[in-house]
Amino acid sequence: MAMQLQVHDHVVVVKLGGELDHHEVETIRDQIEAELERTGYRGLVMSFRDLDFVDSSALGLILGRYRTVTERHGRMVLCEVNESLARLFELSGLKRILPVAATVDEALQCLREG
């Protein structure tokens, strides 16, 4: 699993690649939570561009971060969702509660516009 954490305009941007399964999600969760805590930012963008494998553990990770961000009265946008992940979004209904943008820039734009 490859993870990049960046900040853009008071938003935490997480880029995930590789295999996103139960074995990987705990470390990722802790790092995202730490970054949100450290910066105090309330916006979160998660990009999945370089994902090679994904299972339902990713849904738990996303819903968990959605909860954190919502508790802080912030917002979260997902982007660069590949076909496998899109299918899991559809099965779980997650698509209905979280906005999905095409690119990181679009996701940031979406957060700026409120």
Binding site: R29, D55, S56, L59
Partner: peptide
């Protein structure tokens, strides 16, 4: 059942069996 999990404290989505079935 979709979204059911016996261990909510682990941030599980409860979608595992639904995904297998599909």
């Amino acid at each position: 059942q979709p979204l059911y999990t016996s261990r909510p404290e682990l941030e599980r989505s409860g979608m595992g069996i639904t995904i297998m079935e599909n």
